[in-house]
């Protein structure tokens, strides 16, 4: 299944070979850990086990910053 996610101000397409996709699958596909990243679905923060579909507006927040 292909999903479009907003990540660090840019739109990214990710492909996950699963029928049911969970927030944790999105984090994994982007190489992120739930220790510092999370998923926002249709404006609401969701847990790692929650499912998402291509119709949802998905944003991924990576909290790590440098400097």
């Amino acid at each position: 299944m292909e999903l479009t996610v907003k990540y660090r101000g840019q739109e990214k397409k990710i492909n996950i070979q699963k029928e049911k996709i969970k927030a944790e699958d999105i984090l994994k596909a982007l190489g992120l850990s739930s220790e510092y990243a999370f998923v926002v679905k249709n404006g609401e923060v969701i847990g790692e086990n929650e499912e998402v579909s291509p119709e949802d507006q998905i944003k991924v927040i990576n909290a790590i910053s440098g400097g």
Binding site: R8, G9, Y36, G66, G67
Partner: peptide, 16 residues
């Protein structure tokens, strides 16, 4: 939401 272009490769990110 995006990083300062000068902080790329900062050792603090690696440590984090």
């Amino acid at each position: 939401e995006y990083e300062c272009p000068f902080s790329e490769g900062a050792s603090s990110i690696e440590y984090k």
